[in-house]
């Protein structure tokens, strides 16, 4: 009996260990135009993650422009610590090079990733986000993607620190980012 207990303990420990390695969102490789990145790369900094797509003519560019504007309003030392990352939810239609050009048009410091669906789903569920493909039967677009409107603030451990939904107001967004990061520094 003792033996069984011990071996199951060992099994549990092994499971916990592998579980830890494979499920740590911070160490998942995200493809970018350069080398793949991990959330863990931002050791002392933060990520602002947005789930979007480039065939979105209106809400996504408006969000990216709001975000670019908000980032310029942050104190420089704080802005330096925050990396904006657009994760495409349209893995069928979005090509990495195109998504990268797209985000850099709004701000050369922004990064883009088009992960495999499995990785995307892992990220989306970790941050409590949402996306869905919606057919547009009579539209030349064929389909659109519904996706979370929010920005997700994370640290290098991949902790979900805040969900930012400030609409299209750069000043309100900048203030919120500043508040959330100040809160982290104080903690």
């Amino acid at each position: 009996m003792k033996k069984i207990w011990l071996s199951s303990l060992a099994l549990a420990a092994a499971l916990a260990l592998t579980g830890c390695q494979s499920s740590s969102i911070a160490e998942v490789d995200l493809p970018t135009m350069g080398a793949p990145i991990q959330l863990a790369d931002q050791e002392d900094g933060y990520w602002l993650i947005y789930f979007g797509f480039t065939s979105c003519p209106d809400v996504c560019p408006t969000t990216m422009a709001t975000l670019s504007s908000a980032m310029r309003m942050l104190p420089q030392d704080m802005a330096d610590k925050v990396q904006v990352l657009l994760v495409s939810v349209d893995t069928e239609r979005d090509e990495l090079a195109a998504v990268n050009d797209y985000v850099q048009y709004f701000n050369p410091a922004f990064m883009a990733s088009v992960p495999e669906t499995e990785t995307l789903d892992q990220l989306v569920s970790h941050f409590g986000a949402f996306y869905r493909k919606v057919p547009l039967e009579d539209s030349a677009m064929g389909y659109t993607m519904d996706h979370s409107a929010a920005l997700y603030l994370s640290n290098g451990e991949g902790d979900h620190l805040a969900t930012l939904l400030e609409g299209y107001n750069p000043k309100a967004l900048a203030e919120r980012i500043e508040r959330e990061i100040t809160k982290q520094n104080g903690a």
Binding site: C56, V59, F130, S139, M141, T144, D146, A149
Partner: peptide, 22 residues
């Protein structure tokens, strides 16, 4: 453009949606 359509974008339950206006 190849096509021009009338669309609306809106946020509902924190989700961005875009729909063609039939």
């Amino acid at each position: 453009a190849n096509s021009v359509e009338l669309h609306t974008g809106y946020v509902e339950d924190g989700v961005m949606r875009m729909r063609q206006l039939e």
